[in-house]
């Protein structure tokens, strides 16, 4: 079984936020007003943060695209009381909206702020995919066919694309990648199988210096950042 991971080259990233926009478009993540964004009630599956170190003129800005880290030891999976968040066999941490009771414990526990709560009834209720884990997709979209308020959402590594690619026999990581990786004009985001030593992500990780965010949390995230 593959173990999907993402490698983001910070040297190539220009901070254009195409990844965040593409994610919103691909997954139909509701748009929030500027006020809601300021209040932090607008959902984001993918965000780009700017981190400054030092004072002007000796200042350094790091631009960090932050999807869900899909941690191997995910705190959100540990704390979810309803089994709504779980780790698939291929390492993707999935949020099941039908099971989610909206207790927000996972938002509290996530060290990366990767999770968003649906604070209001979204205007665009359709997902591009049924809001079901893929292994249940044959049962249809009952009983929550639409996106509703009151549940927690997060990045899924575009698992619908991955699953479809595997069904169609395409190569994940080369022919098919998540929407953010596809949209990146600088080709800074790579996606692939971390367990496969021939995959592009493994090659990048073995040839370049990399780091992961908040390693001290012990979550072993599967999003890697190339730094040198």
């Amino acid at each position: 079984m593959a173990r999907w991971g993402m490698v983001i080259d910070l040297d190539k990233c220009t901070g254009c936020q195409s990844c965040a926009v593409a994610c919103k478009a691909e997954n139909n993540v509701p748009h929030g007003s500027p006020e809601e964004h300021e209040r932090r009630t607008a959902p984001f599956w993918h965000k780009v943060i700017a981190v400054s170190n030092g004072e002007y003129p000796a200042v350094r800005i790091d631009l960090i695209p932050m999807p869900c880290m899909h941690c191997d030891d995910a705190p959100c999976v540990t704390v979810c009381p309803a089994k709504a968040t779980y780790r698939r066999e291929d390492g993707i941490v999935i949020q099941d909206f039908r099971r989610c009771i909206g207790c927000k414990y996972c938002i509290v526990a996530c060290p990366y702020g990767a999770r968003s709560f649906n604070y209001k009834e979204p205007e665009e209720k359709e997902y591009h995919r049924p809001d079901l884990p893929p292994e249940r997709a044959d049962r249809g979209i009952w009983p929550f066919p639409h996106r509703v308020h009151g549940v927690v959402e997060k990045c899924t590594f575009c698992f619908h694309r991955i699953d479809q690619a595997i069904r169609e026999g395409k190569k994940v990581g080369e022919e098919v990648v998540p929407a953010c990786a596809e949209a990146c004009p600088a080709h800074a985001i790579s996606f692939g199988d971390l367990d496969d030593s021939d995959s592009n992500v493994s090659r990048l990780l073995s040839s370049r210096q990399w780091m992961r965010l908040r390693e001290e949390m012990g979550t072993s995230p599967k999003v890697f950042y190339l730094t040198g």
């Binding site: 979810c80 309803a82 099971r99 989610c100 709560f117 009151g150 549940v151």
Partner: peptide, 25 residues
């Protein structure tokens, strides 16, 4: 305080629908 209060019963499906490593469960 739950986002979907109609699903609160899921908190009481011990061991069956609950993840017992969660302090909430």
């Amino acid at each position: 305080d739950l986002g979907r209060p109609e699903k609160f019963w899921r908190l009481f499906m011990f061991f069956y629908m609950n993840n017992m490593s969660s302090m909430f469960a």
